[in-house]
């Protein structure tokens, strides 16, 4: 019986591959000037649909007695790019880890891609197949080559033939600009390269949503840009993204919305321009003054 569900998801996924590819071609690469050549596409230029990708309502989470997430309400539409920021320990990681059930919430509802996250393992796996995640410390599999890292999930979860999986993987490795490293092991790559591999690895599963948990904060400054460039490209392709990051340049450039969290609550959310230039709450102001000094 597990077999039949797998088959249906496989066919669905290949259908989405095609439609996404078609959408990518059709989308005009509208570039508007936003002060300087570095800033490419304005947030408004990318299609945000009315379709809901993630719906979090009245969600609470505790670690033992510690109330780590408090009454979280958040709706993410398909195509939206959200940046989450806030002081250390405010629960940012916990929030996005709840969205693919790496952490369990105790109250409220999380609906991802129309599937509610409960204890049902099958539902959880269904969600995880559609949600990619990139971690602060890359978490590449050190015993596998770069190519094998990328093909593992497509082959074992999507049941994709090996040859096809390798082709897809090479395509994404080319997109993150390191196809020549395919045969190496993660330990032989720089941090920035590893993180780009991690992004490619997630993309190989053809996810509909990508979660990023501080993808650049373990990197040396000169490597941050190469990873952010890849993420900007991804944003331009219309991916639904939720990024925990303190890269404010990135937030300004690609985010539709910036969410500020503190002590397990969403304190403030706004589109990036407003958020940075006119923060409303004092805590936000204090936080911004600390990271932007």
């Amino acid at each position: 019986m597990a077999k039949s569900t797998r088959k249906t998801t496989t066919s669905r996924s290949s259908a989405t591959t095609r439609s996404q590819a078609a959408a990518k071609k059709a989308a005009p690469k509208a570039k508007a000037s936003n002060g300087g050549s570095a800033a490419t596409v304005p947030a408004a230029g990318m299609a945000v649909t009315d379709e809901v990708a993630i719906q979090v309502s009245s969600m609470n989470k505790w670690y033992g007695d510690f109330h780590v997430l408090r009454d979280i309400n958040l709706t993410v539409n398909r195509g939206e790019r959200i940046v989450v920021c806030g002081p250390s320990g405010s629960g940012k990681s916990t929030l996005i880890r709840c969205m693919n059930r790496l952490e369990e919430h105790q109250e409220g509802q999380i609906i991802v891609d129309g599937i509610e996250l409960t204890n049902d393992l099958k539902k959880i796996d269904e969600v995880r197949r559609e949600v990619g995640m990139v971690f602060q410390h890359f978490n590449l599999f050190p015993h596998l080559t770069i190519l094998e890292n990328c093909t593992l999930a497509p082959i074992w979860v999507r049941k994709m033939p090996k040859r096809e999986a390798e082709e897809v993987a090479m395509e994404f490795l080319t997109k993150v600009k390191i196809p020549e490293q395919a045969g190496k092991f993660p330990g032989q790559l720089s941090g920035g390269q590893q993180q780009r591999v991690a992004i490619a690895r997630s993309l190989c599963m053809n996810p509909r949503i990508m979660l990023f948990d501080e993808p650049t904060s373990a990197l040396d400054p000169e490597m941050i840009k190469e990873v952010l460039d890849v993420m900007v490209d991804l944003a331009e392709s219309g991916m639904t993204m939720i990024c925990v990051t303190h890269e404010m340049g990135f937030a300004r450039k690609v985010a539709n919305r910036v969410i500020f969290m503190d002590e397990g609550q969403i304190i403030e959310q706004n589109e990036p321009g407003e958020f940075f230039d006119n923060p409303r709450s004092d805590r936000t102001k204090l936080f911004l003054s600390q990271i932007l000094h």
Binding site: G132, N139, L152, M205
Partner: peptide, 20 residues
Amino acid sequence: GQYEAADAMALTYWKSMYLI
């Protein structure tokens, strides 16, 4: 992180043990 990465890509328990 290795367990989490395996979980996040929807590998089942036995597959993530066996493969990763």
